[in-house]
């Protein structure tokens, strides 16, 4: 019998497979395909204080073994999330991790306070948003701003596990360490990688926003490397993601140091992907005589 349980701070997960924010909505659409209770955790689409419209189309384009998106963090806003989306997700026996977006530290703090009070099990900070007060530089790329943000949210969050999602657009070990020192219970990585693709016939960028975020199997080796570096820089758990499409990909992230993994773009190709990946992890454990999934974490032989 395999033991798939993992702990992420105060979060007790029945298995290490969660959804990546922005790839599973607020759960309802995926529930048409499988019972979300089977997941380790449900990570919700990012939430801002007010609803965000997102970017004009085209918003997506496929690239070799990957895709670029410029959705623009479209979301229903905090009020609708608390009134409809969160209560709906409570029908499933699965920890809910809210992902929060702000354009100022104050917005993050207010979001975190409301969501912590509403009883979400985890709060994930998306620090890739433009910091309006800092002239649009993302919170995730300015070390001092980043550490202050994490520290401020830490003071607010009393019961939920605080997860900081790192941007791949900055030195990952340093930011992971800063997140830990500022009180994060875990770090998650990687967010999509800034990228661009051009239609050579029309000479137009393939997403209207010009630059978008690259995800999918194309980014996986980069993500594995960053998870490896981050996990060696911190003691808090690491949640790994980036192009996981099958069980062995998830195992690879865990070998590199991840305690849990998130499935993102693979859901777009196949809504059943998270469960197939979980099956693959279980099969790997059985084949290798591994009883506890946590024993895989960080066991790469270097």
């Amino acid at each position: 019998m395999t033991d798939l349980r993992v702990g992420i701070g105060s979060l007790k997960l029945k298995n290490p497979v969660m959804t990546a924010s922005g790839t599973a909505g607020y759960g309802a659409e995926l529930a048409e395909f499988f019972d979300p209770s089977l997941l380790g955790a449900l990570v919700m689409k990012g939430i801002s204080l007010e609803p965000w419209q997102g970017n004009p189309p085209p918003r997506i384009t496929e690239t070799p073994c990957g895709m670029i998106n410029s959705i623009g963090l479209q979301n229903v806003g905090l009020e609708m999330f608390l009134r409809e989306k969160l209560p709906f997700a409570r029908q499933w026996d699965v920890p809910v991790i809210a992902n929060i977006l702000g354009t100022s530290a104050d917005e993050y703090v207010r979001l975190a306070a409301e969501l912590d009070g509403a009883g979400v099990e985890g709060i994930e900070l998306n620090v890739s948003c433009p910091n309006i007060k800092k002239g649009g530089i993302s919170f995730g790329r300015d070390m001092a701003v980043f550490a202050r943000l994490v520290g401020a949210v830490r003071k607010t969050v009393k019961s939920a596990a605080l997860i900081v999602k790192l941007t791949p657009d900055a030195p990952v070990a340093e930011f992971a360490r800063a997140a830990e020192e500022s009180g994060a219970d875990a770090v998650s990585l990687i967010n999509s990688i800034p990228a661009m693709a051009i239609d050579v016939n029309t000479r137009r960028p393939l997403v209207k926003n010009v630059i978008g975020g690259l995800s999918g199997p194309a980014v996986k080796p980069i993500a594995v490397r960053m998870v490896y570096q981050a996990s060696r820089a911190v003691r808090v758990p690491v949640i790994g993601m980036g192009g996981i499409t099958e069980g062995r990909d998830a195992v690879e992230f865990m070998l590199a140091g991840a305690h849990a993994v998130a499935v993102g773009t693979a859901i777009f190709s196949d809504p059943m992907a998270p469960l197939k990946i979980l099956d693959g992890i279980r099969a790997y454990m059985e084949n290798h005589g591994i009883k506890r999934v946590s024993a895989i974490t960080g066991s790469v032989r270097t």
Partner: peptide, 9 residues
Amino acid sequence: VGVCLGCAV
């Protein structure tokens, strides 16, 4: 299926 928000109209 409604989760990626790519097909915005």
